[in-house]
Nucleic acid binder design. Sequence first.
DNA 1: CAGTGGTCTAGACCACGCG
DNA 2: GCGTGGTCTAGACCACTGG
Lengths: 266, 266
Amino acid sequence: MPATPDNQVLIEHLDPTSDRAVFRQIADHLRAAILSGRLGEGDQLPSESQMADHYGVTRMTVRQAVGVLKGGGLVESQHGRGAYVRRRPQVRRLGSDRFARQLRQEGKAAFLAEVEGVGAKPTVDQITVSEERPPDDVVQRLHLGSRVKVVVRRRRYLIDAHPVEFATSYIPAEIARGTAIAEQNTGPGGIYARLEELGHRLDHYDEEIRARMPDPEEARSLQLAAGVPVFQLIRTAVDVDGRPVEVCNTVMSSDAYVLDYRLPAQ
Amino acid sequence: MPATPDNQVLIEHLDPTSDRAVFRQIADHLRAAILSGRLGEGDQLPSESQMADHYGVTRMTVRQAVGVLKGGGLVESQHGRGAYVRRRPQVRRLGSDRFARQLRQEGKAAFLAEVEGVGAKPTVDQITVSEERPPDDVVQRLHLGSRVKVVVRRRRYLIDAHPVEFATSYIPAEIARGTAIAEQNTGPGGIYARLEELGHRLDHYDEEIRARMPDPEEARSLQLAAGVPVFQLIRTAVDVDGRPVEVCNTVMSSDAYVLDYRLPAQ
DNA sequence: CAGTGGTCTAGACCACGCG
DNA sequence: GCGTGGTCTAGACCACTGG
């Protein structure tokens, strides 16, 4: 009479007659456990060795299964510690009125004011300002000639020391050169307030939103786990004369943000 | 004197003194080749065996490298054929005025009219209509009681036979029951035209946008390659009395869409 | 049929974390 | 020091594509 170790109950979860690959079946089990709540956010998965024993497969097969869940953003692993059900960080809602409001707020940049308002600690770092030839898509959006330079502002935004987005703004040098827009600190109300003071009364913003996987540099800068896509939001500010005066390219961690827009029906 | 086969030039690309894992170095090489255009969209990568020979590693190591690029959405592999630089399909731009327009268009649903307008063949399939208890988040958004039922409309949209999005609409049964909204074919102008005919003049739409990796069911339904995230767009239609009359939950392939919004500055 | 990617084994050694 | 995940080897067999 053969021995029947207790892991037999788990081994029975595998269907050897199924066409579905073993590692996919294991991934399915883990996914079901997570979605059902049997494994909650932050819970540790069984170790790879344990699962290999349980299912009667090698560690490499288990790793394939876990890899599926990591690619789907459900699981995050930490070298030397274990694999965990990924926690969804607190999201920040970006309303479509955020810039209308900003124009009225004096003294603080919108990001700082809003994040402090919910009791978190906002930071802006990696600020650089330079004058450059813009990339082609920016040339198009700003209706510039091919040799025209722009002031380029780069910065990264963090909430409670967690990076959530970074942005690059392009303003025609003709407008921004020598103004506060070309300084590290643009002063109260940010560059939109400065643009209006310079006579470019703003009419509207056009926003283009894409979603994609980050490149390795973006993943590093935003400390993204595997399986977390980014929003790419390209905003063009247009003044009342119909002239585009700024393009801002923002890359945001998709699990730090929900974008809210209100559209009139007419 | 040892033989130096021609693949030696490629083997030299590996830096054995580097801390970076071999499969990451290989992935870096391939990514650089793709981003520089040396490998263009649709081009076939060297076979796994070829790369294993070139770099002097096993096939499993090469597969890890290719897996990195698949997870990033850069590469797509086809069983028995090879691995290819992924093609980005044509994108459809979703303007924020798409529903204001729709109200004026008679005779055709907005999706069909717009896609035909660019010379492509639009399809809607998997249409189902039923009456159900809505999920919690829909109960909240529609300001409903806990036992109230809604008419649920599901459908999938395809462009040139490629699925690009699927959507689920929830309309309070009290409003929709017995009307064209509860039929397969809602008639000219779609459900928004019917809602207005029923006396619910629409005031605005609230849209919430998220990005995330698809679950396996979504990936199958939208035929998504690995490394392609989805947009999830939840739209709530509100009538002039301030009553939410529809919630529509749409899941879209992120590489089929760019979302465009225009925001007034004031 | 040959060549491709997909799955899986049975090991090995390493780097990291934590007690 | 021990358990964890990370990397890598050297095979094997399979499923699929295409000539």
